[in-house]
Simulated assay, not measured.
Amino acid sequence: MSSATATTAAGYVAGLLFGLGLAVSGMTDPARVLGFLDIAGAWDPTLMFVLGGAVITTFIGYRLVYMRGRPLFGNSFQLPSKQELDVKLLGGAALFGIGWGLSGYCPGPAIASLGGPSLPLLALLVAMVGGWFIAKRC
């Protein structure tokens, strides 16, 4: 198996595991996410535990991976070099948060929810893809 094929296969397996984790944890349900964001009403802390589990897993996982010295399917780690905040980053983060708060979906759960599409989900996906094209022009 070539390195490119192994890398692609590993990416698909990771995406499948991520989507499965979202489905099992209930994070593909926008009502659960909106319940977490509703701190003044019927607050649902479930998302906090899912995010906490993700942070702990990532914290441990990165340390284990970096102990190898290089990635399993590549020559070097591809880490972002840009470290300063700019208007594009802050604006994108604000748009992401507004979209997440209005719809209850962020990109991962939205794509994982494609098995049971709804009008709000499709509207979000159209807006998200439109945003990618607009961002490329900026």
Rank of each mutant, 00 (worst) to 15 (best):
residue 1 M to C: 00
residue 3 S to G: 02
residue 6 A to T: 06
residue 7 T to D: 07
residue 8 T to D: 02
residue 10 A to W: 01
residue 10 A to L: 10
residue 14 A to G: 10
residue 15 G to M: 07
residue 17 L to W: 01
residue 18 F to Q: 04
residue 19 G to L: 02
residue 22 L to Q: 01
residue 24 V to W: 14
residue 24 V to N: 04
residue 26 G to N: 01
residue 26 G to E: 01
residue 28 T to R: 06
residue 28 T to N: 04
residue 28 T to S: 07
residue 29 D to T: 00
residue 29 D to L: 06
residue 29 D to P: 05
residue 31 A to K: 03
residue 32 R to Q: 05
residue 33 V to G: 00
residue 37 L to H: 03
residue 38 D to G: 10
residue 38 D to F: 06
residue 39 I to A: 15
residue 39 I to F: 15
residue 43 W to I: 09
residue 46 T to P: 03
residue 47 L to Y: 11
residue 48 M to A: 15
residue 49 F to M: 09
residue 52 G to S: 12
residue 54 A to N: 14
residue 54 A to L: 15
residue 54 A to W: 11
residue 55 V to P: 05
residue 55 V to A: 15
residue 58 T to M: 11
residue 59 F to I: 12
residue 60 I to R: 07
residue 60 I to P: 07
residue 61 G to Y: 05
residue 62 Y to G: 00
residue 63 R to C: 09
residue 66 Y to A: 11
residue 68 R to C: 08
residue 68 R to Y: 05
residue 71 P to A: 05
residue 74 G to P: 01
residue 75 N to W: 04
residue 75 N to A: 12
residue 75 N to I: 03
residue 76 S to L: 09
residue 76 S to W: 02
residue 78 Q to A: 11
residue 78 Q to Y: 05
residue 79 L to Q: 11
residue 81 S to T: 08
residue 81 S to Q: 09
residue 82 K to F: 05
residue 83 Q to C: 04
residue 86 D to M: 00
residue 89 L to E: 03
residue 90 L to D: 08
residue 91 G to Q: 12
residue 91 G to R: 13
residue 92 G to N: 07
residue 93 A to W: 13
residue 94 A to F: 13
residue 96 F to M: 11
residue 97 G to M: 13
residue 97 G to S: 15
residue 97 G to D: 10
residue 98 I to M: 12
residue 98 I to H: 14
residue 101 G to H: 15
residue 102 L to Y: 10
residue 102 L to S: 05
residue 102 L to M: 13
residue 105 Y to N: 03
residue 106 C to K: 02
residue 107 P to Y: 11
residue 107 P to A: 00
residue 111 I to F: 13
residue 113 S to D: 03
residue 114 L to V: 10
residue 116 G to S: 14
residue 118 S to N: 09
residue 118 S to T: 15
residue 119 L to A: 13
residue 122 L to W: 08
residue 124 L to D: 00
residue 124 L to C: 06
residue 124 L to V: 14
residue 126 V to G: 01
residue 127 A to F: 13
residue 128 M to K: 06
residue 128 M to R: 01
residue 128 M to F: 15
residue 132 W to S: 06
residue 134 I to V: 15
residue 135 A to E: 08
residue 135 A to G: 07
residue 136 K to W: 12
residue 136 K to Q: 14
residue 138 C to T: 13
